[in-house]
Design a protein around this nucleic acid. Structure first.
Lengths: 251, 251
DNA sequence: ACTTTGACTTGATCCAGATCAAAGCTTGCC
DNA sequence: GGCAAGCTTTGATCTGGATCAAGTCAAAGT
């Protein structure tokens, strides 16, 4: 009885510790005691539904957000109503790091499907990280990793062909899902072809044609948003531009 | 006499405080006393000459570097000997932030001209930033700003035309030089056309043709690596893609 | 069952910018 | 000075992927 009370108390209070994505998130590398301190400043947001905004371009920066379940897309609205997709965020990934410097969001973020998120008020996180060195270290790592990810994207947009881009994208999804304990070869894409194309700097039609081609070549089976990867090695080869079609850009 | 001694002592010990780029660099927002503590861990490297390496792809990550004078290019060497230019670094800019996460450099950095740099051993900086909250804050800002810069580049590579890219690049240089107290309209590019093209995802020939066109259109005067901007507004318009030639990408 | 709506696919055509080719310029070195 | 090696420019051609233009298909309402 006493035992049960303790358990239910723990279940209520301890969230990060039991969170399925904790190992990918902020708590990584923290002592249990420090995770407790972190939990005290983390808030749960009410679930977002498809299309709901997490924040908008120009909003004052207050908090970082972590996807708990579902997925989020961030994008820069352009003057003429167009948009430019900057990223897709899966469970465990942190959103808003780019806003720290300017104290305002430079992009918008909306849910791609029903999603749950954690909100971490940044001033409190900053404070906490001055007294928990491991948290500071983790923050540096996360910020640095984000830079690394963007550098990867620069590589992709700067010199990869359409074929390489989409293969890279699909593999990247596969790897990120795997880290979250999901199947790396059988998954659902929560974003539209249009959004994928926009993200990769390609036209929708090109994305569509490539999915068809990959399927014809036996690399994957595509059924609308459901993807089954058949030949991971083949995709890897494609994504590195060593395919037979590949011609080296002189640059 | 006593006075002179103090002065020369100060001159030796105090470096950041008198540094011409201090206001753009790590000391920004620190108390004089804390700047002193920062100076204690900063080392000066021997000057690098054109082509010298600051670090190479794969090197263990030990330090961040700040350009003091000159300029540095960072790039990702690709398997087949090609390279992909990731950035050009001017005085006051910090190099190596992307390596914190993996504890290894994922790109190489070489001097574009004779350059002086400051080396900041990261473990010591990390330590120091746990006891100087303002330093921690400045680190978060710098990392975040770097993310913002890369996002800008994603925008550029993902949806801008060649014309817009080069105009954006030239204006970006202009603004960065201005922040350093140099002329925003009359400057020297330390990198080759090839490197500019590679950085912007364009062929050398395209870069060359565009410079010629800009000059013909009276936007700037180009003499080899020496650039004089004539019509900043015109360039700004071009860089935003509102030019008459511009057609909206549907994405 | 029938329309509407929006996302996706497929085919035909077009074009910005890459690639190929060939000079001009600079710079450095013997 | 003169020659070689790189840069840079300029012209001609080619092509990957964008655009334009019809469909096709699935889910949701009527």
């Amino acid at each position: 009885m006493n035992q049960r009370n303790i358990i239910s108390f723990e279940t209520l209070r301890v969230a990060c510790k039991n969170c399925s994505v904790g190992a990918l998130c902020l708590p990584l590398g923290l002592e249990p005691e420090d995770i407790g301190r972190l939990e005290n400043i983390v808030k749960r947001t009410r679930p977002l539904h498809r299309g709901d905004f997490l924040f908008r371009d120009g909003d004052r920066f207050r908090s970082l957000y972590v996807v708990k379940t579902g997925s989020v897309k961030s994008y820069a609205p352009s003057a003429e109503g167009g948009e430019r997709v900057l990223g897709f965020h899966l469970p465990g990934e942190i959103i808003g790091l780019d806003a720290i410097d300017k104290d305002a969001h430079a992009c918008s973020a909306t849910a791609l499907e029903t999603s749950a998120l954690c909100e971490i008020p940044f001033p409190r996180l900053e404070e906490l990280s001055t007294v928990i060195p491991n948290l500071q270290r983790q923050m540096y790592r996360l910020l640095s990793k984000e830079i690394g990810n963007e550098t990867e994207m620069l590589l992709l947009l700067g010199k990869k062909s359409a074929e390489e881009r989409l293969a890279t994208f699909v593999l990247n999804m596969s790897k990120r899902l795997q880290k979250r304990g999901l199947s790396p070869t059988d998954f659902h894409l929560s974003m539209s072809r249009h959004e994928i194309g926009n993200y990769l700097g390609l036209a929708v039609e090109t994305v569509s044609r490539l999915f068809t081609r990959y399927q014809d070549d036996g690399l994957m089976v595509v059924d609308r948003k459901h993807i089954q990867l058949i030949d991971l090695d083949g995709l890897e080869t494609l994504s590195n531009g060593s395919g037979p079609t590949r011609q080296q850009q002189r640059n």
